[in-house]
């Protein structure tokens, strides 16, 4: 079970969180024209990479904040966690 540092609450066990997928995905702006390909990429297409990955987690059974977590998908090492409003560096 992973140990995730919530930027708001501190170190917490994985079972307090729920996974939210790739954090680098940006939702297209509302009301803007977008090609089928770009929309498909946003809705469906994700890299399933092995290695460092910025991903979203929600501290569901805690502060309920969505956070960004940089994790190695192979080793599960967590390098950094950020608040929702903080930009991935």
């Amino acid at each position: 079970m992973l140990h995730i540092k919530c930027p708001h609450c501190g170190m917490r066990s994985q079972n307090e969180f729920s996974y939210g997928g790739d954090a680098s995905v940006k939702r297209p702006e509302l009301g803007k024209d977008i090609s089928d390909q770009d929309w498909n990429n946003f809705v469906y297409n994700r890299k399933s990479l092995r290695g460092k990955h910025w991903e979203l987690w929600q501290h569901l059974a805690g502060c309920r904040q969505w956070i960004k977590v940089e994790r190695d998908t192979g080793s599960h090492e967590i390098f950094k966690t950020l608040k929702a409003e903080e930009e991935i560096s």
């Binding site: 729920s18 939210g20 939702r27 979203l56 929600q58 569901l60 309920r64 904040q65 969505w66 929702a84 409003e85």
Partner: peptide, 10 residues
């Protein structure tokens, strides 16, 4: 969770 996702992140 869905509402929180859009309010906090999007």
């Amino acid at each position: 969770s869905h509402l929180e996702y859009y309010l906090q992140l999007v």
